[in-house]
Design a protein around this nucleic acid. Sequence first.
RNA 1: UGGGGCGUCGCCAAGCGGUAAGGCACGGGGUUUUGAUCCCCGCAUGCGUAGGUUCGAAUCCUGCCGCCCCAGCCA
Length: 561
Amino acid sequence: MSTEEKNTPSNFIRNIIDNDLAENKNNSNVVTRFPPEPNGFLHIGHAKSICLNFGLAQEYSGKCNLRFDDTNPEKEDDIYVKSIKEDVKWLGFDWGDTEYHASDYFEKLYLFAIELIKSGNAYVCSLQGDQIREYRGTLKEPGKNSPYRDRSIEENLDLFEKMRKGEFKDGEHVLRAKIDMSSPNINMRDPIIYRIRNVEHQRTGNEWSIYPMYDFTHCLSDSIEGITHSICTLEFEDHRPLYDWVLDTLNTPCHPQQIEFARLNLEYTVMSKRKLLELVDSDKVNGWDDPRMPTISGMRRRGYTPAAIKEFCERIGVTKKDSSIEMGVLESCIREDLDSAAPRAMAVLDPVKITIENYPEDKEELVIAKNHPNDPEMGTREIPFCREVYIERDDFMEEPPKKYKRLTIGQEVRLRYAYIIKCENVIKDENGNITEIICSYDPETKGGKTQDGRKIKGTIHWVSSRHAENAEIRLYDRLFSIANPDKGEGGYIDNLNSESLNILKNCKLEPMLAESENRDIRYQFERIGYFYRDKISSEESGNLTYNRIVTLRDSWTKAKK
RNA sequence: UGGGGCGUCGCCAAGCGGUAAGGCACGGGGUUUUGAUCCCCGCAUGCGUAGGUUCGAAUCCUGCCGCCCCAGCCA
């Protein structure tokens, strides 16, 4: 760690590593790996693992490999490896010169399998799928030995070679580790380590007809790469005896330590690639990078920053306890990052026009606005002002509640950085909807300061009607309507929030927000929230489109309830 | 008694036998040309529960209760 020593809280994995280091295990090296399967896009849960693995490596001056766990050609695709690399890089992590793939070890793995057969620890089983299941027993009853369990080493070798050569159909045979069919741990009941799949692999093409299973591949890949701490999620805890068995039984370079932690659950969303894929495939969302998705690509498009995501992963901690994190934690992280970093701007989402009757019809002037209220170094800008300006429809109320300090008939309010105005009259259409608000202004208050020292309680934002840029603004809300979508009535799909996307088409922006050189800046639209230009929409259609990253905290709406 | 895990504030989480950190949320107050930010203050005589060991227990022991994971030729 070079720069600022931020107080990172301890966790049980750091404790384990500290102890290992104290005992000089692994020559005091720390080597971790992030091992995604390229069968989907990465999500915030993966970010937790990425931050953990790469973070530990950084912290202990070790290294972290990026390894694609690509042993199931039927589900995997190169587009996923591309997106995964983009996401990891965007988060700010560096996997060095080497991009690892389990498929690069297929030959080595094959040799290890032969070693296993030769030592009498693996056999070719010719039972069919349902028979294998039957022989496996149940959670409470032991399994029974396969009739093929005692094939000779020669026969096994011969059969396995033929499997490799593609002489069999899918499913005809499998290679199994010979362990213990009566083990209380089902993973130890002669687990399958190779299966026949006559399909093309995205990287090895048609070179192989057999593919190794996770339990065989993962531990050996870790060992080949000299991993010291192999960190995975809780559901693999039961697999650890097998992980250790393979490495103990074979002659391997080293024996990494598998450590399990609890995967991330976030309220109001789902965190499984299968479910996210389903949302994409069934068009419930607009692709993997839909800004409502908990995917890294979705969050990136929405406007989240790598810093906020990393801070989030730091705050939630690492334990073995199942937990579900409140959205508020994530929101707090992005607000914290953006509060100091985001330049301010003014935008009106739901415009209503006000006419300042005592302001000259043809007059226009520029007012000076700070780009950040607490950071003078961010400078100022000039904003055009004229007789008609748009303000937020709900910044005016005819019958205001107590403590209301915005615009209402007879009450003064400040147009931020411009003038103090007072509402004189309201014009409505035949349905009683307000179409225009008539105000007067105090010419002595340019910039928003009063000459006589009178206090103005409220300040509202505005955009000059003559200079406004029209824009589409997309407001996002939680993807699901209940905290734990999997536990509600029906399936998780039934719990989707129908109001997760709200598209506003008639928004008014101050001119600066339309300039193309400001395309990649995250802004705070004052009094509303943080926004980021949507790359895809803005580029494809030419329409100016902003995504809301997160709202500002709002104690007023809260207080009213 | 199938096996493996986990139970500390509403949500996370430190703590590793010496008398309950911190964050988010929440409540109260102050500053403020964003009802934002910022700044103060408050927020577990209590660590799933019942016993036991000890001068002393969230930490050690025993029982009980609750929750999660495992029977893919997925990872």
